[in-house]
């Protein structure tokens, strides 16, 4: 019986992605563009939120969008209709965007001419949380139709977020969404995570969201200052 040799690796399993994310982050910084990673389950309203945000953003900032979807270019077509530069990524079955995909996607964008880049991740409340893209801020969108228990059921994405947008609040009177349960769940996962109640459809709360973005974009908030996990 030969002896056993123990070999210490201490290597991150996602080291490959983390290294690419680090390169993305460096590149975004050197180009002076800030990046928001929008995450939610399918149908929570990420694209609708962008449609409500971009007409304002476009007037004040140089902005572009990367759309991640398993298939179709539908979301990119919706964004392009607003005269905002957009790149559609199709992940061909993959459940999340990774840093390498984002590096490829931004190749066709004029990064040095941008202030803000929105990355709409693949609709999924689980996998995108594990993959750092090199973004400055992670924004998780939850809609009231999904139920108030989601922060506790899908903690990782809420735990690493810099902001939670509670969308479709215009439907609150039609659904059994218990605000107390939602807030208690969020507190147990990440106390102090800011929450903004919005409706992309009616425009309620959109001003607060825009103010949040503007606050982040001030020069005294350097890129990557989110500091809530990956950075």
């Amino acid at each position: 019986m030969p002896g056993l040799l123990e070999i210490k690796m201490a290597r991150k399993m996602l080291e490959g992605n983390d290294e690419l994310a680090r390169r993305n982050r460096e590149r975004f910084r050197s180009c002076g563009v800030r990046v928001v990673n929008l995450m939610s389950s399918p149908g929570a309203g990420k694209t609708a939120l962008l449609e409500a945000t971009l007409p304002w953003a476009r007037d004040h900032l140089r902005v572009a969008v990367v759309e991640g979807d398993v298939a179709t270019a539908r979301d990119a077509q919706r964004i392009a209709a607003l005269q905002v530069p957009v790149v559609q990524m199709n992940t061909a079955g993959a459940c999340h965007l990774d840093a390498g995909m984002l590096a490829d996607a931004v190749e066709s964008l004029p990064l040095t001419d941008l202030d803000l880049l929105f990355v709409e991740n693949v609709g999924n409340l689980v996998c995108p949380a594990a993959f750092d893209l090199g973004e400055d801020w992670r924004v998780v969108v939850l809609s009231v139709t999904e139920g108030a228990d989601k922060p506790e059921k899908y903690p990782a994405v809420f735990r690493r977020a810099d902001l939670c947008l509670l969308n479709k609040v215009d439907l609150l009177s039609h659904v059994d969404f218990d605000m107390e349960v939602f807030q208690a769940g969020l507190r147990s996962v990440q106390p102090g995570l800011p929450v903004l109640k919005v409706s992309a459809r009616t425009g309620v709360g959109m001003e607060a969201w825009i103010q949040w973005l503007l606050g982040r974009l001030k020069p005294e908030n350097p890129a990557g200052a989110g500091g809530n996990g990956f950075v």
Binding site: L4, L5, I7, K8, M9, A10, R11, K12, M13
Partner: peptide, 8 residues
């Protein structure tokens, strides 16, 4: 997510 070590 860490690959800690192996024994060979």
């Amino acid at each position: 997510l860490l690959l800690d070590s192996y024994e060979a």
